[in-house]
Design a protein around this nucleic acid. Structure first.
Lengths: 344, 344
DNA sequence: ACTTGGAGCGAAAACGTTTACGAGTCAACT
DNA sequence: AGTTGACTCGTAAACGTTTTCGCTCCAAGT
């Protein structure tokens, strides 16, 4: 493993000059710079991460915190793998590396993040699964660590975030259901403190209002964001009098549970209960009837996430001069057969 | 952000003593050690990662390389998230952190790994999606970086790996299919160089041999490890004369495609073609008929992975004195309805 | 009383970089 | 001819730790 010292000796130069050559400083002869770069390549010199960041106070890597383990509220498909890819497209352009930090299931997310931030192992942070009140946000602001949150929160005041368009989706979904004759539309929300539950509810309410339908709190259920939750929710719906004719689900896995409960009762999704789900589950097209849901490009989303993060980092403020950006990511309707026109 | 220097000043001690106190060295008064620890806690001192690893040559963090992006041959989110959790259970016991390194889709995995290793940002590596001949293995050996591979390979000679029991699964599956009357059993393998394809084929062959069935190469197809691949494979099977009565698929997503192709042809999985799949897809129970497949505990697997890695690290050889360990992880049959007894 | 030894601590070097500063050379200008 | 400035490059300090070495102090042994 070769260091800058041996590289300099090999070239007959001082380590200072070699360093400047490698870092594209102006005050080095183009001739020598070329020699240095060639030698570095030949000897396989790679700067030592620790030495570099100790001196510079910067690590050239970005942390992406996720929760590890089987959290049923996590997405069912390759959501993160897709997003990582988009983020990296942006980061690689600036020689930044992405390191994913999976918070163990049994550790408090804020404490885990605290540890990671204090170690100074990353220059900036992406946090996911944002809670309605999320201690991590105040913490990051206080620690002056640039970050972006994947999801809005009521914590903090003015910080960068990017979120999916839950309100838009709720509105489009309700519009569609109403147009198809539905009036009593149930809503399945997550039972935990994930903020999207609140935003989704807002969209649901405002859409109802536009259609001059009254809001009935008994139609809103907060259940586990899993197949189990969907099963249980559908069980409740079947017992309601009068029974809702449609249900809007925020998590795709819930739809699977809903299908199962209906099948068990000898009922048909789309016939006895219309179902619309938020994000497209990977098995959407293999469900029968096909599920009406919403679709997004994970890679594009990741790219946008990366760019918004860089805009929040002082070192890149010149290339991404947007400052603090808050963005709402749109989704596209995938029309299925799980919510046909209501039979008379 | 407070460093050891200011911590020492605050205590009226030298930084050497403070460091020794924090690191549980013997030559420090228990009284002062207590004072130091309390002050560190109070002032929120956390050692600077870069300084520490520059001096010690060790980073206290383990890298887990995965492929980011939508590589259908890679496992899904849920697989890795589950494994991460298990790995961390072990690592946290030794104050090690897990950092996941997602290799961008468009970068050569070996080069990416090279970069990560040369930067000295991690003490050891876990690599996944092992190829039959995998440049990463020789590279890691040459760089003297402790590692474990998730999957066997023909590269290298004696290195730690842990792999799923593909041969066992293939044998159990074939036994079951044969017992149910099937004689012409097709096999769906990945088209890329992932090693499991070869191992799985070996298991398939040896099982056939045990049952004194001849091996027919025209029955094994190498297709994309995706739903598309399964669709295409089933398409081929339907055109065969005589048509195989069963198919054994190595990737769960293939089963989805198989179901779809059969449905399109007006045929029924399990009736017109028996289907058995390797690993349980998350939607296994919602397929109709339910899929016969194999199940494993991701967390337990992760724990074993973590322990085997530690055994390969010189610093932990005393606590995990197994040396280089190669392990085959068993899976459990989940009996479904997709491969019933063959009708006469 | 003198040595021995251990316990506890401070001083300083070292890890691999980057960068501020200064020194040297040489051409161009006054 | 002397001054100026641009262009290269070397020197050395600094980043925050850990660890080796040696020093002091004091108790215990001779």
């Amino acid at each position: 493993m070769i260091g800058i010292r041996r590289l300099a000796e090999h070239l007959g130069l001082s380590i200072g000059t070699v360093s400047r050559a490698l870092n594209n400083r102006p005050d080095v002869n183009p001739e020598t710079r070329k020699r240095v770069l060639e030698a570095a390549d030949e000897l396989g010199y790679v700067p030592n991460q620790s030495g570099q960041s100790l001196r510079k106070g910067t690590t050239n890597s970005i942390g992406f915190m996720i929760q590890s383990g089987f959290d049923p509220s996590s997405n069912s498909d390759n959501f993160f793998l897709g997003v990582f890819d988009g983020v990296q497209i942006v980061l690689r352009r600036h020689n930044l590396d992405l390191t994913v930090l999976p918070c163990p299931l049994d550790e408090d997310p804020a404490q885990y993040l605290q540890r990671m931030v204090a170690r100074r192992g990353v220059d900036a942070m992406i946090i996911s699964a944002t809670r309605r009140v999320d201690a991590r946000i105040d913490m990051l602001i206080k620690a002056r660590m640039p970050f972006i949150a994947l999801g809005r929160s009521t914590s903090g005041s003015n910080y960068p975030w990017i979120d999916l368009d839950f309100e838009g989706v709720a509105n489009v979904a309700i519009d569609r259901l109403v147009a198809r004759g539905h009036r009593r539309i149930a809503l399945g929300l997550p039972s935990n403190d994930i903020n999207l539950g609140y935003v989704f509810l807002d969209g649901y309410k405002s859409a109802l209002k536009r259609h001059k339908l009254s809001f009935d709190p008994s139609l809103v259920a907060r259940v586990a964001t899993s197949e189990q939750g969907g099963y249980q929710l559908t069980h409740q719906i079947l017992a309601m009098q009068p029974r809702p004719s449609a249900v809007l689900l925020v998590y795709e896995m819930m739809a699977i549970g809903a299908y199962r409960r209906l099948n068990e009762a000898g009922l048909l999704p789309g016939k006895d209960l219309a179902i619309v789900t938020f994000r497209e589950p990977p098995m959407a097209r293999f469900l029968s009837p096909s599920l009406t849901c919403f679709r997004m490009s994970l890679r594009d989303f990741g790219v946008s996430l990366g760019e918004s993060l860089l805009a929040a980092m002082p070192d890149f403020a010149s290339t991404y001069p947007n400052g603090i950006v808050n963005k709402i990511w749109p989704l596209e309707l995938v029309s299925g057969e799980s919510d046909p026109f209501m039979p008379k």
